[in-house]
Design a protein around this nucleic acid. Structure first.
Length: 212
DNA sequence: ATAGAGATTGCCT
DNA sequence: GGCAATCTCTATA
């Protein structure tokens, strides 16, 4: 029995453009073993069209999973110490993906706390892409895992709808493609990372780059 | 072959 | 706010 009830997202969910899939992943539930977190922040990476994507320069050993079929997990190692997880999207050969940036801890809290000794509050457990992976125990062993398969990490729909008006902003940490508003988050959730970054709601700020 | 930057985090001042 | 930790990949030689 899974730690939380819900329906596994089908392959067809992931087989669309990452920019369509990303906002729909908000409020879905990432599950690994007995641990689960509700996804509240994501970013889309669009492969060949996107200079910020790892896949922009083509196929490498590291990005192989991104070029494969949708519905698999692309887990990469960065800064010499951190793992980050993406849901591979689009048809095979199109290297697009959605980076899972933050979550609300739902199940397996004690295991998350054990995995993240630096966390001092519950909101420190999953409030960042590398924190989320560390809390759920996702590392290189999960790279390429089939999210639609019966075992391993997966993503569930537990009935909570996606936000009708998610927060929207430029992606965090990237040096190129900063004009692209491809980061979505659940407005007001304390687990969302980068609260200090400028963010806007699609309706409240129709123009970009004009804020002081 | 070697150097530098990177889809980050946590500890320091 | 600054910066170290330290693997993968790219650029340059």
């Amino acid at each position: 029995m899974r730690p939380v009830p819900g329906r596994r997202l089908p392959r067809s969910f992931y087989a669309r453009d990452a920019r369509v899939v990303a906002p729909e992943l908000l409020n879905k539930v990432l599950v690994h073993g007995d641990r689960a977190a509700r996804i509240v922040e994501v970013e889309a990476y669009a492969g060949a069209d996107d200079p910020a994507s790892h896949a922009y320069r083509g196929l490498t050993p590291r990005t192989t999973v991104m070029f494969g079929p949708p519905g698999h997990l692309y887990v990469y190692f960065t800064y010499g110490m951190h793992w980050c997880a993406n849901a591979v999207c689009g048809p095979p050969g199109v290297a697009s993906a959605v980076l899972l940036r933050a979550g609300v801890p739902l199940a397996g809290l004690s295991a998350m706390e054990a995995a993240r000794p630096a966390a001092r509050r519950v909101t420190d457990l999953c409030s960042g892409p590398a924190k989320l992976c560390q809390a759920l125990g996702i590392d290189g062993a999960s790279n390429g895992a089939d999210l639609v398969g019966a075992k391993g990490p997966t993503i569930l729909d537990d009935g909570m709808p996606t936000p009708t008006e998610p927060g929207l902003s430029a992606r965090i940490g990237v040096k190129t493609g900063t004009e692209l508003p491809w980061r979505w988050f659940v407005e007001g959730d304390p687990n969302v990372s980068g609260l200090g970054h400028r963010a806007r709601s699609p309706r409240s700020a129709p123009r970009m780059g004009t804020e002081p």
